[in-house]
């Protein structure tokens, strides 16, 4: 038997016809994720999560735990649903009318899709950094101060100043901008803007930070800085990062989850996934056979 055929029979996948990309074949509905979806010390825990965009079934039966003070990377080819899944974790999908989410997602044991749950404090606890840096057209100070202001986290101007300084320091930006806090945030470079957005997210003291391809719009030097930052933040925050770069996933994360056409195919320790993937699809993606 050829390697392809033996591997195929092992994983119980049909052998693809020549010329047809293996990446386009959907998995069954009762597919079970390979690897340990659950961890001991989970900050967030997802059970049987499904997401529908109108008719389209975008995320299918995903179980996953997000470990505390860890970085988990979500990888997979374009359109596989990783960003969609990420947006479920802080209910940003609520802003999209045609999107429907089912299943249970728990933050510290409490289901965040509970009808009675208030989405405002949830988003203060689970922050998000977007793909393209989106600072407000306000001053750097006001960008950071916006979150604490609306939540009332600072009782006085002095406290607010402290929060701003603390957030910018944690984001590694303080030294660069401390003399120009009143200048517009949009005047910074791309990498600085993204770090500003990270500082803005930190300012409301979240427990979890979600990052949706945070470096894809940045140059390599800025990317390096942000990755360094992610590593530092790991001590105090739980981070889930979506990335289309496997190398980045390998660099920054401790766990990695591989998504494929809406299914969570495999999850495990980052080093394991990249050196010894257990599912054929994972291996094919990582070795570059598609995606």
């Amino acid at each position: 038997m050829t390697t392809a055929e033996s591997a195929a029979s092992e994983a119980e996948l049909p052998v693809p016809k020549a010329g047809v990309s293996i990446g386009s074949r959907p998995l069954d509905d009762d597919f079970k994720t390979v690897g340990n979806v659950r961890v001991n010390d989970a900050r967030m825990s997802c059970t049987d999560v499904n997401v529908f965009y109108g008719e389209k079934h975008a995320i299918k039966h995903v179980d996953l735990d997000i470990g505390k003070n860890q970085v988990i990377a979500m990888i997979g080819p374009s359109g596989c649903g990783k960003s969609t899944f990420l947006r479920c974790l802080n209910r940003m999908n609520d802003t999209i009318d045609v999107c429907r989410v089912s299943g249970a997602i728990a933050l510290d044991g409490q289901d965040i899709y509970d009808k009675k749950l208030d989405v405002v404090p949830l988003r203060a606890q689970v922050g998000m950094v977007f793909q393209k840096p989106n600072p407000f057209p306000k001053s750097i100070y006001d960008n950071i101060a916006y979150g604490p202001r609306i939540h009332g986290l600072a009782a006085s101007r002095v406290e607010l100043d402290e929060i701003v300084e603390r957030s910018l320091t944690k984001a590694g930006l303080w030294d660069e901008v401390k003399d120009r806090l009143d200048q517009p945030g949009t005047g910074l470079s791309g990498g600085q803007q993204q770090r500003l957005c990270i500082a803005r997210t930190i300012a409301v003291e979240p427990e979890v930070i979600l990052m949706d391809e945070p470096c894809s719009a940045l140059d390599p030097i800025a990317t390096a800085k942000v990755e360094e930052l992610i590593d530092e933040l790991r001590e105090n925050y739980t981070i889930a990062i979506v990335t289309h770069s496997m190398q980045q996933a390998a660099r920054v994360s401790q766990r990695t989850a591989y998504f494929h056409l809406g299914h969570l195919v495999e999850v495990g320790e980052t080093t394991e996934i990249f050196t010894n993937p257990r599912h054929k699809l994972t291996e094919d993606y990582i070795t570059g056979r598609f995606g």
Partner: peptide
């Protein structure tokens, strides 16, 4: 999006 993600009404 940025504003909602920070928990603003």
């Amino acid at each position: 999006d940025a504003s909602y993600a920070l928990g603003a009404t």
